[in-house]
Design a protein around this nucleic acid. Structure first.
Lengths: 230, 230
DNA sequence: CCGCATCCCCAAAGATACTG
DNA sequence: CAGTATCTTTGGGGATGCGG
């Protein structure tokens, strides 16, 4: 009998870490924030985690009540992992962590999963930086990954995988270049923006990370500091 | 060159986890939330972490910019660890984690550090559940640990280690029993409440964890579900 | 193919002893 | 008091393989 690898504290924080504190655990959850995913999706999204570790984390998180394994109905009998309601309640934790992470003194560098790029828009979206009654529907295509994002009455009401129905704006291109656009750079050679670019600009202004809760600088300076990333 | 034990993602969440995602790291930070502590304080607060692990975490967190090691001025030349401003910015992360953790389907059990008990009051304090212009000064003594807690105009403005100056209420006793009182149980045999008990009751009503952001149930039911813990 | 299970190896964590 | 040294144990990274 191993000496219980948990913290063994009644503290809610320690308890939370017992559930989502293991390596890769929270990143697995992140990849489920935009909807169910299959094992292989997670594998490609998190190449650093070997199959054994990934399986282990999925089992642990399932036992912990964070996610469930569901086998899709017979026609396409694939199995997917999805967050439980309690797992979905981790949203504020992601917001807090992401907002803290962007304030890091050391620059962050490396890859970004497509999900992570899109989640950055949601994490840093600030309703106060947008005209009161504003409604728009966006579609983003990062390589093969397609997302839709809806703003209704100045609130970000939907961010999900899959195409949008009659979008106002479609942004499409290689992930790295779409990322650059979301970070404030002008549309590049291989990025196409279909529809009103002003709508996109408005969205990006509302989604720029700010160090505090303070309003963002008025100008959209390119380079680092964009919303890219959860 | 080892294969870099970090996630290697530009995602702010992954980056945050690179800094505070290692085992014990966040609990070390928790123990510094109420002010500087010495190595031995941390050791007794986190007995599960061996001295080697503790030292490692402290060095890592220092390198990560979360805390600093400071040697107190000559008279009492002890060295203490304390949070940097950026480290102190982890407050919202603790709030989010703690509020998520209390919603766990599996009951949490185990010890609680004295700091953790007191931090629960701050984490779950809700200004909306308190009369608008309310001011009070509390002192809590859990075994040898002394804390002061100040409410000014309905806001929790101070929670720190050390005695209070002319407190309105003093709660003192063995930690386990003070904990029970904070969780809603009536004062036990060895817990003394000096001053107006109604003030304490008012504080505890404002600090009960709620599953959502919803108002707490009107009655103070004893048993599990108290504010105990970060 | 997809969804893992198995194996090997090394780096971190746990435990204990000891030292400036 | 504030760690370092040492040893053992565990978990994670990486590759390969296998059944449905």
């Amino acid at each position: 009998m191993t000496a219980e690898r948990r913290y063994g504290e009644a503290c809610p924080v320690a308890h939370a870490l017992d559930v989502i504190g293991d390596r890769w655990a929270l990143l697995v959850v992140r990849e489920l924030r935009l909807g169910p995913r299959r094992y292989s999706d997670l594998q490609t999204a998190l190449p650093g985690a070997g199959p054994n570790v990934l399986t282990r984390r999925l089992r642990d998180l399932e036992a912990g009540g964070v996610l469930t394994r569901r086998t899709l109905p017979p026609p396409a009998a694939a199995q997917v992992y999805e967050l439980t309601p309690w797992g979905a309640d981790l949203e504020p934790v992601f917001r807090a962590l992401a907002r803290w992470g962007v304030g890091s003194p050391v620059p962050r560098e490396g890859r970004l999963t497509a999900d992570s790029v899109m989640l950055g828009l949601r994490t840093f979206f600030d309703a106060d930086r947008v005209p009161r009654p504003w409604t728009a529907l966006f579609e983003f295509r990062l390589d093969r990954h397609v997302f839709r994002l809806r703003v209704e009455n100045g609130r970000l009401t939907e961010l999900a995988r899959g195409p949008a129905d009659t979008p106002d704006v479609v942004v499409a291109g290689p992930q790295a270049q779409v990322q650059a656009v979301l970070d404030g750079a002008p549309p590049w050679d291989r990025v196409s923006v279909t529809g009103d670019p002003a709508l996109l600009d408005r969205l990006l202004r509302a989604s720029r990370p700010t160090s505090s809760g303070a309003p963002a600088p008025a100008d959209l300076t390119p380079g680092p500091g964009g919303p890219s990333g959860t």
